[in-house]
Simulated assay, not measured.
Amino acid sequence: MSDSARAAAAGAEGTGREGSRPARGGKQEERRGLFARIALFFRQVVAELKKVVRPTRAELLRYTAVVLVFVAVVMAFVTLVDLGVGSLVGWVFGG
């Protein structure tokens, strides 16, 4: 086995349970209370919502048009497939 393969294997062995959690520096971190955790959650939600970029009116109209055209195309495809399968079933079973 080469030296690099041994080093890779040794590095892979160290990825067990002890590598999955960050070290706490030897002191126990005090667990937060219920209301503190809820408040932290809402602060994080607000921070994430501040990152949201809203589309301009032109972009919104363009996106809406793209969605409506796509839905119309899919509806037409499904309609044609339905009519084709219906005609085929009618022809096979003599309806």
Score class of each variant (00 low, 15 high):
Y63D: 08
D82H: 12
T64G: 11
E18D: 14
V73R: 04
R21Y: 14
D82Q: 11
R54T: 10
G26C: 02
A23K: 09
E13H: 10
W91I: 01
K27S: 15
F35A: 04
E18F: 08
V78T: 07
L60T: 06
K50P: 01
V52D: 01
S20I: 09
R57Y: 08
G86P: 03
I38K: 02
T56P: 00
Q28K: 13
P22E: 12
G33K: 02
A65H: 08
L34A: 09
V81C: 07
E13K: 13
G84W: 10
Q44V: 00
A58V: 05
A58G: 03
K50R: 12
V69P: 04
G11K: 01
D3W: 12
A5F: 09
A23P: 10
R57V: 08
S4D: 12
L40V: 00
L60I: 00
E59W: 00
F77R: 11
R17N: 07
A65F: 07
A10I: 05
V92E: 08
Q44M: 01
K51N: 11
E18C: 07
G95N: 05
E29R: 15
A12N: 03
G14K: 01
R37W: 01
R62D: 11
A10F: 04
S87N: 14
A12W: 03
V73K: 05
T64I: 07
E59I: 00
V78S: 03
A10W: 03
A7I: 13
E29Q: 13
G16F: 01
F93Y: 15
Q28H: 10
S4T: 15
T56F: 00
T56N: 00
L61D: 09
T79Q: 14
R21V: 12
R32F: 06
R32C: 10
G19D: 13
V78W: 06
G94W: 14
T64K: 11
G86Q: 02
D82P: 01
A36E: 10
E18L: 11
K50T: 05
G90D: 15
P22C: 08
D3L: 09
L40A: 08
D82N: 12
V69F: 07
R31W: 03
G33R: 08
L61I: 08
G11M: 13
Y63R: 15
I38S: 02
E59M: 02
V78N: 00
Q28C: 11
E59A: 05
L83Y: 11
P22M: 06
W91L: 09
Q28I: 15
F77S: 06
M75N: 06
R31F: 13
K50W: 08
F35Q: 03
M1E: 12
L49N: 03
S4E: 12
L49E: 02
R31H: 10
R31C: 10
G90P: 07
F41T: 06
Q44A: 02
L61H: 12
T79L: 15
R24G: 14
L68Q: 15
K51V: 03
T79W: 15
L49V: 11
F42K: 01
A23F: 02
G95R: 12
A12G: 06
F42I: 02
R37F: 00
L68K: 15
Q28W: 10
V46T: 05
F42M: 00
V46K: 06
G14Q: 07
E48C: 05
L88Q: 06
A65K: 09
F41A: 02
V71H: 04
S87M: 05
T64H: 10
R54Y: 15
V89A: 14
